[in-house]
């Protein structure tokens, strides 16, 4: 599965469009990570626990989008975008969306 965030695939020709595919996940942080983060907050710097959490959820959102694209028979997703929104306190939704297409091999 090829992913790009431009409206074509550099070096390849698109032969069929399947329309929008998307994947999302809502994740909450857990207490242990929160505690570590609040300690790290005193001196500043990277909050690794949160970085990992957001990376994991983004990966899952992309995976769900890819599964949807595969079901349609696509072999690439172009124009992929990410969006993050906080649903409730301590929980965030990560959304990935794009256009499923088929390229010549």
């Amino acid at each position: 599965m090829i992913l790009t965030n431009v409206d074509h695939i550099p070096g390849k020709r698109i032969i069929e469009h399947y329309g929008l595919v998307s994947g999302s996940t809502v994740r909450a942080k857990h207490v242990g990570r929160d505690l570590m983060a609040s300690l790290k907050n005193i001196v500043g710097g990277e909050l690794k626990g949160y970085t990992e959490l957001l990376q994991d959820s983004r990966r899952q959102a992309v995976e769900r989008m890819v599964v949807q694209a595969e079901e349609l028979g696509a072999n690439a997703v172009v124009n992929v975008r990410f969006s993050t929104s906080s649903v409730a306190q301590g929980a965030a939704e990560i959304y990935a969306y794009g256009t499923a297409v088929r390229t010549e091999d």
Binding site: I2, L3, T4, N5, V6, D7, I9, P10, G11, K12, A37, K40, N41, I42, V43, G44, G45, E46, L47, K48, Y50, T51, L54, Q55, R58, V80, F82
Partner: peptide, 26 residues
């Protein structure tokens, strides 16, 4: 921008991403 030199042949293209969470000190 979305443009890249037309003259070259592209071998491979893929999406890359990087993320970080940082905070400031007290």
């Amino acid at each position: 921008t979305r443009q890249y030199p037309d003259a070259v042949r592209v071998l491979e293209a893929r999406m890359v991403s990087g993320a970080v969470v940082v905070s400031i000190d007290h």
